[in-house]
């Protein structure tokens, strides 16, 4: 029983990072209705910015975090300008494949800068685990969970209580109408992309600071985890993205505990598959979003 509770807690902690990754994905997908496969790799490029700063200049934790976010935003905007902005309506597949090509490009760029397989990343918190009765909670996990909840709240607030959010929702609902009433759609989409990359950057920083190492494979990992969590949670729903991430984390930790790492991944994909087949809208997705996602 204690194990079960402990694993669930660990799952929620790890899941919060998946939720964060899914949050950025959801913002991009919500605005563009297109899949950005380069999402993870842009976060990875940010992480490499941070790592260079950490290794070569001995930067502190906050400076590294800022570098990760800045790097993710720069490369995110680069992806948007190259793969999404110039594509006409109906060319969703071309955008997706193009973002895949840029993924390959970013990965090689990262390897050129830092050629080894893994590099150290500064730790988030090094203190001993907190004991709550018989349960253990890692302090860095707590920070990660707090960060996820805070960011989700900020995104939700920004979407529903700011002018920027109002414009974004207008673009999401109907880009042509939004344009007609004077919304600068192109600029707004770019800003949304930058914001999503920043969210991804924060997520990436938290995950890597917990793991304390970084590899070029992190890009693929982040894209996959974010995508799975977003699909489980439901396309286009911000609480859904967070919830999907938490569920994925809990499923992973339990199946890992019970059956080992390979079955853990098997289970994660099985849950995703089962959700898609039985409930294509995910946990909280609305059917309207499902219809809109017809053309990727």
């Amino acid at each position: 029983m204690i194990d079960f509770i402990q694993n669930t807690i660990d799952g929620v902690m790890i899941g919060s990072s998946y939720g964060l990754l899914a949050l950025g994905f959801t913002v991009i997908f919500g605005v563009m209705r297109r899949l950005n496969l380069s999402y993870g790799p842009t976060v990875m490029i940010g992480a490499y910015f941070g790592t260079v700063l950490y290794l070569d200049f001995g930067a502190g934790l906050l400076a590294v975090a800022a570098a990760v976010v800045a790097g993710a935003v720069i490369s995110g905007v680069y992806v948007e300008r190259l793969c999404f902005a110039p594509m006409k309506a109906g060319a969703g597949i071309a955008s997706m494949v193009s973002s895949f090509a840029i993924w390959m490009q970013l990965e090689q760029a990262a390897v050129l800068v830092l050629p080894r397989h893994t590099y150290p990343f500064p730790p988030l918190a090094t203190g001993p685990a907190l004991e709550i009765g018989p349960l253990l909670v890692r302090p860095d996990h707590l920070i990660m969970l707090g960060g996820a909840l805070l960011l989700a709240a900020v995104v939700q607030l920004a979407l529903y209580h700011t002018r920027f959010g109002l414009g974004l929702r207008a673009v999401i609902a109907n880009p042509i109408a939004a344009n007609l009433v004077g919304v600068d759609v192109g600029r707004l989409v770019m800003l949304a992309f930058a914001a999503a990359s920043a969210i991804g950057g924060v997520a990436g920083f938290l995950v890597l600071a917990v793991d304390q190492q970084v590899t070029p494979m992190f890009g693929m990992w982040a894209t996959l985890k974010g995508l799975i969590a977003m699909m489980i949670g439901g396309l286009g729903s911000i609480p859904g993205a967070l919830l999907g991430g938490l569920l994925l984390g809990v499923v992973e930790v339990h199946s890992h505990w019970l059956f080992g790492p390979q079955v853990r991944d098997l289970f994660a994909y099985f849950v995703l598959f089962a959700f898609l087949v039985a409930r294509p809208g995910g946990l909280l997705g609305r059917t309207a979003d499902v219809e809109l996602s017809h053309r990727v």
């Binding site: 997908f29 899949l35 995508l227 799975i228 699909m231 396309l235 390979q262 079955v263 991944d265 098997l266 994909y269 099985f270 995703l272 598959f273 898609l276 087949v277 294509p280 499902v290 996602s293 017809h294 053309r295 990727v296």
Partner: peptide, 22 residues
């Protein structure tokens, strides 16, 4: 996966393929 469309179909096939690989 018949009734899945767009991104949902793509991700379902991805999940299937990864299950096969594992």
């Amino acid at each position: 996966t018949l009734r899945l469309r767009g991104l949902q179909f793509s991700i379902a096939t991805l999940a299937f393929a990864e299950m096969v690989r594992i």
